[in-house]
Nucleic acid binder design. Structure first.
Length: 551
RNA sequence: GCGCCAGUAGCUCAGUCGGAUAGAGCGCCGGUCUACGAAACCGGAGGUCACAGGUUCGAAUCCUGUCUGGCGCACCA
């Protein structure tokens, strides 16, 4: 793993140790307040001031002197001075910049990978929408988030398994099946009402048509009402077709899963009853008021939760007990559930389930994705499943494209509700940040296409342009951004980084020519271009966005 | 009432293990194509970081309280 700043941190740490007697826990490095102050700044002296009981400026001066006296720093340190309340402002040498660019160019797409402090085996569950209808924009955000997170975790060095949990059981599924049955009958001229609370969308008609494709009129009973077995058959076919449609849409969105876990298999295999029995045996479940309750309040949840209802049906939570105990038993180091904001009340009870099941609840991490609302003509677009006015993921892809949709949905923190202005996304799609980043990639590729061979430099460039310095420092930030994205489960950090990198590159492009420059300069700039191209491409890949050579 | 998330430029939002003069994109104003792609660049206007206290050399960031908005608080999923 290449870390351009490691050598610099080490030297500062050594100097600081010599000055105050003990090494600081971390060496903070950041861009100075303005470019004239140098390439790098460190407030380390301020952090040490209290423990050392010395004024921060004194400490900073002593560290600066130690750095200047250290013969090992000559290769990279051109100048160091103390400014403000005790900042160390450093200017780096052309040879450091040239060597850094060469290292990054050589490393290419693997630069920034493997930053995870402790690689883990992660099971990431996301989307998991009921197969009773198409994915909507809320699912789209979860899909974009979960898929990008999976890519980022893997890039950082973790092992990731992506899983989709299918709620293919219970009341909603029965209503869906009955809705399909009604539409199916309708295709043969027999008008049957969609059941109360059922699914009215046009997609149900499409599903019914697909069923007709498969079986013709074989499921049209002679009797006035279909039998239970016929309904079951229609339900199963409808669910399978719906799930296939969801998978197709996700694939179109460049989102893939390693496993599709069926809730029904938990019931069919007796696992749900088993889970309840396990809790009962351990005294974590009890019967009261005609129902079976999970003693969630004993594990930090605010109240106990029903597992088996008075009518004998199990609840959604009962399935989740079996599912999460199953997941916990598979030996992963970490379980991550990506849930919509309307499920945040579930966190406490899911942890409670794990703890009651004898697992460490800390292995479960629940990431909540805030809601998406669509704006159109400046107003919130009202969506109703019942009225069939839902904007689906498929609609969104058709409307603004996969690249724009994925970048847009993930470039803001998942903890913030997202307003997606459809007019803006459509009419100003050329102004979307994703095009800004993609354009940087196309532009740098265009330069590299005109470069034949690599000139041999006799040494670093004599002078550096501020834009060259800024571009190298932007590239140096990549491992920091990826580490932050990984640790905070925050793909938007990658998007924000890419915008910064693209900005640094565009500025470089306008100030510095690559083709036709003297060898020493050209060699350095070609390295810079190669490093930029590789890093932009890697970053876009992690977001599931294409990095075109030409636009 | 309780819980989670949020409140930063006209709009959408970064920045939140405390660091110098708070940033970006869009929008607005003004410049830049006879040299590698102008989907770009450069400059400008625009801010009581919701409010009030507190912690400290230093707070958008940490603590307490208040206000506002979204979402939850089922024997629905």
């Amino acid at each position: 793993m290449t870390d351009l700043l490691h050598q610099i941190r080490s030297a500062i740490a050594a100097a600081a140790t010599a000055v105050v007697g003990a090494p600081p826990p971390v060496i903070p490095l950041a861009a100075p307040a303005s470019a004239e102050m140098g390439d790098l700044a460190s407030p380390v002296a301020m952090a040490l001031a209290k423990a050392a009981k010395r004024p921060p400026r004194d400490i900073a001066e002593a560290i600066a002197t130690a750095l200047r006296d250290d013969p090992g720093t000559a290769a990279w340190l051109a100048r160091v001075e103390v400014a403000g309340p005790g900042f160390l402002n450093m200017t780096l040498t052309p040879s450091w910049f040239a060597a850094s660019a060469a290292r990054l160019a050589a490393e290419g797409g693997s630069y920034g990978s493997g930053t995870a402090a402790r690689p883990e085996d992660v099971l990431l569950e996301f989307v998991s929408a009921n197969p009773t209808g198409p994915l909507h924009v809320g699912h789209a955000r979860q899909a974009a988030y979960g898929d990008s997170l999976a890519r980022i975790l893997a890039f950082a060095g973790h092992t990731v398994t992506r899983e989709y949990y299918t709620n293919d059981f219970g009341r909603q599924m029965r209503l869906f099946g009955a809705s399909v049955a009604a539409r199916y009958a309708g295709l043969f001229g027999v008008e049957r009402p969609v059941p109360e609370g059922g699914y009215n969308g046009d997609y149900v008609v499409a599903i019914a048509e697909a069923v007709r494709e498969e079986v013709g009129d074989a499921l049209m009973p002679a009797a006035a009402e279909p039998t239970g077995a016929v309904i079951d058959d229609l339900t199963e076919r409808g669910e399978r077709l719906m799930l296939a449609s969801i998978a197709d849409t996700l694939a179109r969105f460049r989102v893939g899963f390693d496993a599709w876990f069926s809730e029904r298999t938990l019931h069919d295999g007796g696992r749900v009853r088993e889970g309840i029995a396990t809790l009962q045996a351990a005294g974590d479940a009890y019967e009261a008021e005609g129902a079976v309750w999970f003693r969630a309040s004993a594990y930090g949840d605010e109240k106990d939760r029903v597992l088996v209802r008075g009518d004998g049906d199990t609840t959604y939570l009962a399935s989740d007990v079996a599912y999460h105990l199953d997941k916990a038993g598979r030996g992963h180091d970490r379980l991550i559930d990506v849930l919509g904001a309307d499920h945040h009340g579930y966190i406490a009870r899911l942890r409670a389930v794990l703890e009651a099941g004898g697992h460490d609840p800390a292995t479960l991490e629940v990431t909540i994705i805030q809601l998406v609302s669509l704006l159109e003509r400046g107003e919130a677009k009202k969506m109703s499943k019942r009225a069939g006015t839902v904007v689906t993921l498929s609609d969104l892809i058709d409307d603004i494209g996969v690249d724009a949709a994925r970048f847009f949905l993930v470039h803001r923190s998942h903890e913030t509700p997202l307003d997606l202005d459809l007019d803006l996304a459509r009419e100003q799609s050329q102004e979307n940040p994703v095009y800004y980043v993609q354009y940087a990639h196309a532009r740098v590729c265009s330069i590299l296409a005109q470069v034949s061979g690599t000139p041999v430099a006799s040494g670093p460039p004599a002078e550096l342009d501020p834009a060259e310095r800024a571009l190298v420092m932007a590239l140096a930030d990549w491992p920091v951004a990826i580490a932050e994205a990984e640790e905070r489960r925050a793909p938007h950090r990658v998007a924000a980084y890419l915008i910064d990198l693209a900005k640094a590159f565009h500025a470089f492009y306008h100030r510095c020519r690559v083709v036709g420059e003297p060898d020493d300069v050209a060699a350095f700039r070609i390295d810079l271009c190669r490093a930029t191209a590789a890093t932009v491409k890697t970053g876009l890949d992690l977001l599931g966005v294409e990095a075109p050579d030409r636009m």
